[in-house]
C-alpha cells in the first residue's frame, strides 16, 4: 500500500474519531436530560407531566424509527443552515448528533427506570428535593448502566459514521466506499474494516472497564 494511501487511512481514522466524539458528546448532553425527563415525568413520578412525557416519547420514537440514511438526506437543509455545507466531516456531525439524541434518551430512561423505587422513596422520606433525587440518587445509582449506555452509543455512532460516508460525509466509511468499493481496492476496504473493528473494541473495553469500576453492587465480599 502506498504511503499516500496509508496517510489517507490515518486522516480518515482521525475524521471518524472526531465525528463520533463531537456527535457523541453533543448528542449525549442533549439526550441525557431528555432521558431523565422521560424516566421521571410519568404520572405520579418526580416531575409529573404525563402529556409532555407522551409527546416527547412520540418524537423520540419517530426519530428512532427513521432509517439513518433517510434522516441524513431529510435534514440536509437544516445541516446546510447550521454548517453552511452538506458534505464533509463537519456536515456529517449534524445528522449523527440528531440520531444520537433519541438513542441516548431511551438508554438513559431505561437505565434510570432500573433503579429500585424504594431508593426514591427513601430519599423523599429524607426531605430531598426532586432535583436532589435526580443528582444524588438516580444519576449516582445509574452510573454503571449509564456508562454502558454511552459505550453502546459510541459503538453505534462508529457504525453510523461509516454510513455517512455514502453521502460524502468523510471518515473511514467514505474512504472505504470511494477506494475500496468504487476503485476496486479490496486491501483498502480490509484495512478500513480492521480499523473500525479495533476502534469498536477499544471503546467497548474502555466502557466495560469503567462500568465495572463504578459498579459497587456486584462486588465480592
Amino acid at each position: 500500500m502506498s504511503p499516500d494511501l496509508l496517510l489517507r487511512i490515518g486522516s480518515a481514522t482521525i475524521d471518524t474519531i472526531y465525528m463520533v466524539a463531537v456527535a457523541g458528546l453533543i448528542g449525549s448532553l442533549i439526550g441525557l436530560p431528555i432521558g431523565i425527563f422521560l424516566a421521571t415525568s410519568g404520572k405520579g413520578e418526580l416531575f409529573p407531566a404525563p402529556t409532555l412525557n407522551h409527546i416527547v416519547g412520540l418524537i423520540v420514537n419517530a426519530t428512532r424509527s427513521t432509517p439513518f440514511i433517510i434522516l441524513v438526506v431529510a435534514i440536509i437543509p437544516f445541516t446546510r443552515l447550521l454548517t453552511g455545507t452538506s458534505i464533509g466531516t463537519k456536515a456529517a456531525i449534524v445528522p449523527l448528533t440528531i440520531a444520537t439524541i433519541p438513542f441516548v434518551a431511551r438508554l438513559v430512561e431505561a437505565a434510570i427506570r432500573e433503579i429500585d423505587k424504594g431508593l426514591i422513596e427513601a430519599a423523599r422520606a429524607m426531605g430531598a428535593t426532586p432535583m436532589q433525587i435526580v443528582f444524588k440518587v438516580l444519576l449516582a445509582e445509574a452510573r454503571p448502566a449509564l456508562t454502558l449506555a454511552l459505550t453502546m452509543t459510541a459503538v453505534s455512532l462508529i457504525g453510523y459514521s461509516a454510513m455517512v460516508g455514502a453521502v460524502g460525509g468523510g471518515g473511514l466509511g467514505d474512504l472505504g466506499i470511494r477506494y475500496g468499493y468504487q476503485r476496486f481496492m479490496p486491501d483498502v476496504m480490509l484495512v478500513v474494516v480492521i480499523v473500525l473493528i479495533v476502534l469498536v473494541q477499544l471503546v467497548q473495553s474502555a466502557g466495560d472497564g469503567l462500568a465495572r469500576r463504578f459498579d459497587k453492587k456486584n462486588r465480592k465480599t
Partner: peptide, 22 residues
C-alpha cells in the same frame, strides 16, 4: 415545609433502601 418536616422524621425500610453506589 413538608421537606423540612421529613428531615425531622427518620424512616427505616424492609429492604433497607441503601444506595449501592455509596
Amino acid at each position: 415545609a413538608l421537606r423540612a418536616l421529613r428531615r425531622s422524621v427518620g424512616m427505616i425500610f424492609q429492604h433497607f433502601n441503601l444506595l449501592s453506589s455509596r
